[in-house]
Amino acid sequence: MENNEPNLDAVFHALADPTRRAVLQALVKGEATVSDLAAPHDMGLPAFMKHLSVLEAAGLVKSDKVGRVRTCALDPATMIATERWFEEQRAFWQGRYAQLDDLVAALQGEKK
């Protein structure tokens, strides 16, 4: 089943942490193993795995274990749906305010 309506609350919670944002930015470049992703971060593996599980629970990251190596990748469906919601909201308000700009200009033109 494809779910295009992620739980935005979980997504925002996941993105609220700098370690998790750094992981997402690293994964933008392509999939990576857990040990590679953990290497730049000054924390133990159990703590790092907790961050990964938050990202997975939010649907932002998916992982796959082959033998002893777990590889992570971005889950594009969730990212796209989240970004789309933002863009729609921004576009709605921009459209609304563009009309107010026109009205403000017209009203000031009338005075002159």
Binding site: N4, E5, N7, L8, D9, F12, L15, A16, R21, L24, Q25, V28, M79, I80, A81, T82, E83, R84, W85, F86, E87, E88, Q89, A91, F92
Partner: peptide
């Protein structure tokens, strides 16, 4: 949070055509 989620889900169902921002933009927004 549930109230906002309801509005978000409703907006997504209406599926207004949209362009996508990048992940970097999203992180800046957040």
């Amino acid at each position: 949070p549930e109230g906002l989620q309801t509005v978000i889900d409703m907006g997504m169902e209406e599926g207004l055509g949209a362009t996508y921002v990048t992940l970097d933009d999203l992180i800046e927004i957040l």
